[in-house]
Amino acid sequence: MSLFPDIRIVPFSRLTQGSRWRAEAMRSYSAPQLLWITKGQGRITVAGVTRGYGPHNAIFIPPRTMHGFEMTGQVYGSAVMFPGMADLELPDTPHHLRIRDGQVQVEITGLLDGLDRELTQKRAGARRAIRHYAGLISVWLERQIALAEDVTSVPVSARRLVAGFAALVEKDFRTAKSVAGYAADLGVTSTHLTRTCNQTCGRSASDLLAERKIGEARRLLADTRAPIKEIAAALGYASPTYFTRAFQSRTGTTPKAFRNAD
């Protein structure tokens, strides 16, 4: 058993657990996480904003923040999960950092390797060492954020709107709430919300909402034995038939076929 059961380092190869959709599906975690990418490229959408990533990118994702990967070929790196450690003073907002300084790259790699050794080897004083390594990683992140330049062309107002939308989706995607309902909560029109989502991530507001619902549907189909009609109801679909139609239009297969094949 780990000394800190909730603190863990997960190689990207394990994030997919044999199924690529597990990395690419929209989802969120209750714990903050830091992604350190060492090889490969693709795109990642965090809180409604899509950006390309490549080697030596560090991406911080706060808890309960909707996100999903798009991978091009093999991508290597690690995800560090930090639940239950409020004293680390981690950021409240997402950050995407491109680390160009070789010495800084070596520094974070060394910290992650040290944390991993303490988590797995359980040497004397490991509990204290784990906490200190986690603290040093948070300091590393804070310093890189302070040095980073905002290179995205997306206006701050647009990022704020889609982040608010993504946060509401994460809260209410299990209901039948429509894009119009989310737009009303945000004080904008559905047209403006969709236009802004297209600007920040190349998807409409309805696409983001559907991807989050289908991502959760895939997880429930793969990881539970709940009847399909119960999954449909739990995700706010009007009927199992409507759920099957929506699922198939997004995945190319029916819920039953997906469950049997996974």
Results as ranks from 00 to 15, higher is better:
residue 3 L to H: 08
residue 4 F to I: 09
residue 14 R to G: 10
residue 14 R to N: 14
residue 21 W to C: 03
residue 23 A to Q: 03
residue 30 S to F: 11
residue 36 W to L: 01
residue 37 I to K: 00
residue 47 A to V: 03
residue 47 A to Y: 01
residue 62 P to V: 09
residue 65 T to L: 02
residue 66 M to R: 10
residue 71 M to Q: 10
residue 75 V to G: 08
residue 76 Y to A: 15
residue 76 Y to P: 00
residue 78 S to P: 00
residue 86 A to T: 05
residue 89 E to D: 13
residue 90 L to E: 02
residue 97 L to E: 03
residue 97 L to I: 07
residue 104 V to I: 14
residue 109 T to P: 13
residue 111 L to T: 03
residue 111 L to K: 07
residue 112 L to C: 11
residue 115 L to G: 12
residue 118 E to D: 13
residue 119 L to P: 13
residue 120 T to Y: 07
residue 121 Q to N: 14
residue 125 G to C: 03
residue 129 A to G: 07
residue 129 A to L: 12
residue 130 I to T: 04
residue 132 H to I: 08
residue 132 H to Y: 08
residue 134 A to N: 10
residue 138 S to G: 09
residue 139 V to C: 10
residue 140 W to Y: 14
residue 155 P to K: 12
residue 157 S to V: 15
residue 158 A to W: 03
residue 159 R to A: 10
residue 159 R to S: 10
residue 164 G to I: 12
residue 165 F to L: 15
residue 165 F to Y: 15
residue 166 A to E: 06
residue 167 A to D: 12
residue 172 D to N: 11
residue 174 R to V: 06
residue 176 A to S: 14
residue 185 D to W: 07
residue 187 G to W: 03
residue 188 V to H: 07
residue 188 V to Y: 05
residue 188 V to L: 06
residue 188 V to W: 04
residue 189 T to Y: 05
residue 190 S to I: 02
residue 193 L to C: 01
residue 193 L to P: 03
residue 195 R to K: 13
residue 199 Q to S: 11
residue 202 G to W: 12
residue 207 D to W: 01
residue 213 K to D: 06
residue 217 A to M: 02
residue 221 L to N: 00
residue 222 A to P: 06
residue 225 R to L: 13
residue 225 R to W: 04
residue 234 A to C: 08
residue 239 S to R: 06
residue 239 S to D: 02
residue 241 T to W: 10
residue 243 F to E: 01
residue 245 R to W: 01
residue 250 R to P: 05
residue 250 R to Q: 03
residue 253 T to F: 05
residue 253 T to G: 12
residue 254 T to P: 00
residue 258 F to N: 06
